[in-house]
Every structure is written in structure tokens, then in C-alpha cells.
């Protein structure tokens, strides 16, 4: 027979770690939330289904290398080819990172602790970036491991693999900042999903329209700029410039460092929107 004794209130005299610890804990917590870890089974379905789909081309490619000694997929083109899946992942998961804290007004509870608005937003961006990077990089790593094991003729494409890996990080930062900025504008999750997907579809759909319009009017060189409307082709253009890979669009990109400048500028805009949004939310 056991009894529960009321031992009264106990004070805490253990360590109190600083804002840095809290920010890291928040980033890990948000990353787990993106993949539905520690949540219901239902919230795991979407992220894990999409992550599994992302792996399919890598598996097929490994099989092709093993059986017919051919590459079915390039490292540099992986993100562009799988862009719809990445976009759906971003649209479905970005709102889960930011919307509940705004909608249910949890933000004041964070801000009354050693966490600042800046570190709160930084943790959220870091979590979303890490999630997107995992989504893009795991298939690449898997494919590269397969290539090393199968040992095709000729040297392994290590340079292209590392280039694609670093561009995955750039793409992840661009998509995470933009996705979170869009999702944070509405506290409703459904609207957040819809607005992210709408912006992606708009940017993708406008590419062929602008491209063909310019092409038919005879501005051939200007037409190549149309590709940069879509974030995946934009980052691919940076990859072409940095790593000398072939273009994965149907035409050439405008060369030079300008696409890279646009990427940096877009990340800056997204961060500015996030900062403005959260400064307003914090002052409520």
C-alpha cells in the first residue's frame, strides 16, 4: 500500500540556461513539429509521405545503375525535377510552424521569457530550413552512396554531388524564409497552405507565358529571364553559374552572377517581411 505525501512546494535551484539554449530548444521543437514527431499519427502522414516520394527517383536511379549501368537521375537536376513535391511540403508544413502561435496567441508566453522576437523568428526559420534541406539532401546522399557502392565506369561525380548539396541549402533557405513569411501573414493554417501553394503555382505558371510572349516578340535573350520567376529554376541558374552544370530548364538561363544576386535579394525581402510581421505581432 502506497501513500502520496504532499511534500509541499519545492524551489528550483538548478541551472538556468540562457536565451541561446532556449532558441535551440525551440528550433528542435519546431523541426519535430514539421515532421509530426511527438504529435498524432495523422500529422505524420503528410511529411513522411512526401519525404518518401522524394526518395523514389534516388532508389530508381540506384537500381538503374546496378542493373543497366546507367544514371537515371542527375544530382544537379533533382530539385528542379521534384519541385512540385518540395513545394507541396513547404505549403503544407510552413503554416504548422508559425500559424498556431499567432492564432492561439502563444507568442506573448515566449516573449515573457528570455527569448526575443528575433531569436524566435530565427529558430523558426532554422527549423524550416533544416526540414527542407533534409527533404532535398537525403535522396542525394542516398544516391551518392549507391553510386560509390555500385562503382560505375569512370570516377564518381563527387563535384556535382557536393554542388547539388550546397545548392539544396541555398534553396532551403530561400523557400523557408519565403514560405514562413507568407504563412505568417495569416493566423489560419488553411489559408497559409493555400497562399503558399498559390504563390508557387503563380510563379510556375507565369514562366511559360512570359517566356513565349517574349520569344514570339523576338526578344530571345530577354526571354531567358522568364525562368528566374520560379524559385527552383532561379536556384538552378545559380548552380549553372557556380558549378558549370547543364541547365535543367528548357532553355538557357541568363548567365553571370545576377541570379545569385536575385536569390540574396529575395531572401532579404522575405526576412524583412518576417521581421515586420513579428514586430507587429509582438507589440499587440
Amino acid at each position: 500500500m502506497s501513500e502520496i505525501y504532499d511534500i509541499g512546494y519545492r524551489h528550483y535551484d538548478g541551472p538556468r540556461l540562457g536565451g541561446g539554449h532556449a532558441t535551440r530548444a525551440l528550433a528542435v521543437h519546431s523541426l519535430r513539429a514539421i515532421f509530426g514527431l511527438g504529435r498524432t499519427a495523422r500529422s505524420k502522414i503528410m511529411p513522411f509521405a512526401l519525404a518518401t516520394i522524394m526518395l523514389v527517383p534516388a532508389v530508381v536511379s540506384i537500381a538503374a545503375m546496378a542493373l543497366i549501368q546507367q544514371r537515371a537521375m542527375t544530382y544537379s537536376g533533382y530539385a528542379v525535377i521534384m519541385q512540385a513535391i518540395v513545394a507541396i511540403f513547404l505549403a503544407s508544413q510552413a503554416p504548422t510552424v508559425v500559424a498556431p502561435d499567432l492564432r492561439f496567441r502563444v507568442l506573448p508566453l515566449y516573449l515573457s521569457r528570455p527569448i526575443t522576437v528575433t531569436s524566435y523568428v530565427a529558430a523558426k526559420v532554422a527549423a524550416m530550413t533544416a526540414a527542407l534541406f533534409l527533404l532535398l539532401a537525403v535522396p542525394l546522399v542516398l544516391m551518392y552512396a549507391g553510386e560509390l557502392l555500385i562503382d560505375l565506369d569512370g570516377p564518381p561525380q563527387t563535384k556535382e554531388f557536393l554542388g547539388a548539396l550546397s545548392m539544396s541549402l541555398v534553396l532551403a533557405v530561400l523557400l523557408a524564409t519565403f514560405g514562413l513569411a507568407l504563412a505568417s501573414l495569416t493566423p489560419r493554417r488553411g489559408l497559409g497552405v493555400a497562399s503558399v501553394i498559390a504563390v508557387y503555382l503563380l510563379s510556375t505558371a507565369s514562366v511559360p507565358i512570359i517566356y513565349s510572349a517574349l520569344e514570339m516578340s523576338g526578344y530571345h535573350s530577354a526571354a531567358s529571364w522568364a525562368w528566374l520567376m520560379n524559385p527552383f529554376w532561379l536556384v538552378d541558374a545559380v548552380q549553372v553559374w557556380l558549378f558549370d552544370t547543364p541547365s535543367h530548364a528548357e532553355g538557357a538561363y541568363p548567365g553571370g552572377p545576377l541570379p545569385a544576386v536575385i536569390v540574396v535579394a529575395l531572401i532579404g525581402v522575405a526576412v524583412a517581411v518576417l521581421a515586420a510581421r513579428y514586430r507587429k505581432a509582438a507589440s499587440r
Binding site: 528550483y12 538548478g14 541551472p15 538556468r16 540556461l17 540562457g18 536565451g19 539554449h21 532556449a22 530548444a25 525551440l26 521543437h29 511527438g38 504529435r39 498556431p100 502561435d101 492561439f104 496567441r105 502563444v106 506573448p108 508566453l109 515566449y110 515573457s112 521569457r113 528570455p114 527569448i115
Partner: peptide, 29 residues
Amino acid sequence: GYMPEHECLPPDVSATEFVVHLARMSGLP
């Protein structure tokens, strides 16, 4: 510590999870 006047709780987590998370946000291991 601060208890706001308005509602500030997310509905989809348990009280234990929520309070543990906020304890970590206060710097507790």
C-alpha cells in the same frame, strides 16, 4: 512569470507537453 489575461493555449497539445516546452523556453534543461 507572466499569466496573460487572454487565451494563450494551443488546443492540440497536452498540458504536460505545453508546460514542459515553456519551461525549456525559460532556460531549464
